[in-house]
Amino acid sequence: MEDIEHIPKELQLIDKKGIRLDGRRFNELRPIKIEAGVLKKADGSAYLEWGNNKVLAAVYGPREAHPRHLQDPAKALVQCRYNMAPFSVTERKRPGPDRRSVEISKVISEAFASVVFVEQFPRTSVDIYIEVLQADAGTRCAGLTAASVALADAGIPMRDLVSSCASGKIGGVVALDLNKDEDNFGEADCPMAIVPRTGEIVLLQMDGHLTAHEFDQAMELSINAAKQIYELQRDALRRRYAAVAEAAEQEALREPPPQEAPRETPPDMPEDLPPEVDDL
């Protein structure tokens, strides 16, 4: 379905010196940028660029689970909706979920269900929305990585962030983080997601052809990369809250505007105010 005319079949995805078409070595990640707290309406959000991927993740919740018959009386549901915008891919994609999006939504929901403290919020739902705005392979890893940041931004209690990355095989070589052309013409792709602190693998998929040894190599590449990604996620969250503190300082020290309305007579003193609850 992707246009394939522009890559001649003879072209090597990785040359004898170990350099790939985009200049990376076999174990190099594409550049990643993450920003937390980018949307106003969502409870938590994150924007992430990963190579040419652009994804936006938002979290609403915990909120009342609808429809009511889906509510779990003992815990929160974790529901993820992964969606690709029509203009995100080379051939326009019809709006709405297709089977691939539904499957990705499911595996990502399951990845988070084991880290979120769902027992703290019975009968609610934690709704995660991942929107792929521009796609260049590895979108589920990018989406999951962004969604992790959005969950933390929303204050959802979790055991840890979840970091996600894929490795595969191109031109017979096990390589990290395949881009679109590499994924289309390579021999295997294996996305995974990990709880960095404990090493638990919460998402794992694979398609293509790998020997058991190659699989080990791929996992080693991905797990090491996940550590770098984890730091980027944490840094995005720390920056968000430091930036917020600075902005507030600027605001407080700005000159107040000149008086507009004439001073009115202050209203009568109010009746009994409710007791203010002291901070705990």
Partner: peptide, 14 residues
């Protein structure tokens, strides 16, 4: 076409 995706508002449903 327009998509009012749920991430944009608590009032938008999929």
């Amino acid at each position: 076409s327009a998509e009012l995706i749920p991430l944009a508002s608590p009032t938008f449903e999929s």
